[in-house]
Design a protein around this nucleic acid. Sequence first.
DNA 1: TGTTTTGCTACATTATTTATAGCAAAGCTA
DNA 2: TAGCTTTGCTATAAATAATGTAGCAAAACA
Lengths: 108, 108
Amino acid sequence: MALPIPGKPVRGSKSGAPVMALLDLLGRSWAMGIVWHLYKGPSTFRRLQEYCETISPTTLNKRLKELRDSHLIVRTVEGYALTQHGKELYELIEPLGNWAKGWAKNFK
Amino acid sequence: MALPIPGKPVRGSKSGAPVMALLDLLGRSWAMGIVWHLYKGPSTFRRLQEYCETISPTTLNKRLKELRDSHLIVRTVEGYALTQHGKELYELIEPLGNWAKGWAKNFK
DNA sequence: TGTTTTGCTACATTATTTATAGCAAAGCTA
DNA sequence: TAGCTTTGCTATAAATAATGTAGCAAAACA
């Protein structure tokens, strides 16, 4: 699937509304998981594979390319790392962590 | 794929950490888009199909079942609607809308 | 120079999503 | 109450995406 670019047709919006481009990007397998893990600090490719437990290298590489092309991560000497944009995005989704704990109680 | 249930193995976490179950659920195509659209108010199946522009009925039905089983939406006489949990979740992801506008500027 | 580690790529298999057709049930409407 | 329309799906086949495994070239290390 092509990179979802705001302003161009994306999944959910022919006009490419920014939020829809973002939801398209984040709604791909592992995308949010990668951002979530990288907030702890830069990671190598192999370490990310371990964090994600069952991601295939093919998919990991694809997601990393998409996230780089979307300016959310960059490669540093220490490995992949969140950009300023990536950190901001993480901070927006961070509250999901605590919320999920309450939500989880529904499943008993 | 099976419904991601907190406490059971999910994509990204063998132990089923709640946030990973949530990211698994939301990281499926259209899941966040559906929640996003439903915040405006209850929608019928056909109307959701229109909102989502290119979702197939097969996938829409699958996502709706998952979101219902996850207590984020319910069926009402007016159509599918967010539950209290669903509304809370929407409110958590709502800030993505404005943030995405700034992020979109990177793509010029 | 030999050994590891790293960051991938290749490839085949499996899973997911799409696209399209269409049908049964419910809700009008005349 | 006999049609016509709308709704909420299901069925099926084709396309696309993700997985699992093997392995390789380059860099780091010993």
